[in-house]
Nucleic acid binder design. Structure first.
Lengths: 148, 148
DNA sequence: TATTGTTATACTCTATAACTATA
DNA sequence: TATAGTTATAGAGTATAACAATA
């Protein structure tokens, strides 16, 4: 009798395929490469993506979302602010809090990051247009609450 | 008249969904977290995954595959060798070359890494078993030449 | 002369601890 | 007393340059 993959096993297989796409081939160094092209560090790029929803957020909230220390968030924002991509303003309701605003230049850079991150692996052309459409639909179901 | 996404646009959308899965939510720090749990550095984990096909490879080949400098590959392999996960042996055909062999302990660790990397995001339970199956099939098409 | 790998070194990335201001 | 953010500092990660051995 042939073993049938359980639902959980199938989910694990799917996720491992996704992970493999990120580890191997042309994508190994994608993040640092794009960041370097855009003259920011990978950490700054990550922060910028995390700020993508447009809502100004406290430094602490950003750090939590990035799963990093607040002091490192400070370092990243320092760099982004020096380059004019974000601004800090004291919160009107709690003077301890500083809200991070993305500037117009920052929004332009965010768009460039997204543009470059979207370039698919060449192996994607093994899929038909219909298959790609299916892939988008399935992946959208599991990521539709993300900032992009 | 309604715009229809071109094939290329669809491919970009699909890839951006994949990328989003990696950047946000519970997966932000997945790689360093798993590496820490297994008492190795993220770089060492990456190297171990890259050596997964079992074939012993020159240090230089590993560095090229990881898109890093040979000196850094040396550093990573030093660490893995100290922990007993790999061994270096001079190539019988070119005495300049050192081949990196994965030990039995290394193979066990590789399996543990894969085991942990395979744990899917919780959002995957929004998909039915059939949808997950479809997802595996599509992703396998674009990754079937990868080491895992 | 060119290539593989290593060592020495320096720079970047990231976290911990101590501190200031505000709540 | 607790929390947001910053500064000082140290450690880990990664690259560049110089070098030894071999081709």
């Amino acid at each position: 009798m042939t073993a049938v993959a359980t639902r959980e096993e199938t989910a694990r297989q799917a996720w491992l395929r996704v992970t493999a796409l990120f580890i191997f081939g042309e994508n190994t160094d994608r993040f640092p490469r794009i960041a370097t092209e855009l003259r920011i560090t990978p950490g700054q790029m990550h922060a910028l993506l995390d700020l993508r929803d447009g809502e100004p957020r406290p430094v602490k909230a950003l750090a939590d979302s990035m799963t990093c220390d607040a002091s490192y968030a400070t370092t990243l924002i320092d760099g982004l602010e020096r380059s004019g991509y974000v601004e800090r303003r004291v919160s009107p309701t709690d003077r301890r809090v500083k809200l991070v605003y993305v500037t117009e230049a920052g929004r332009k850079l965010q768009a460039q990051v997204i543009e470059r991150l979207s370039v698919p692996p060449t192996a994607f052309d093994r899929l038909t247009a219909a298959e790609l459409r299916t892939l988008v639909d399935l992946l959208t179901k599991v990521t539709d609450d993300f900032p992009f």
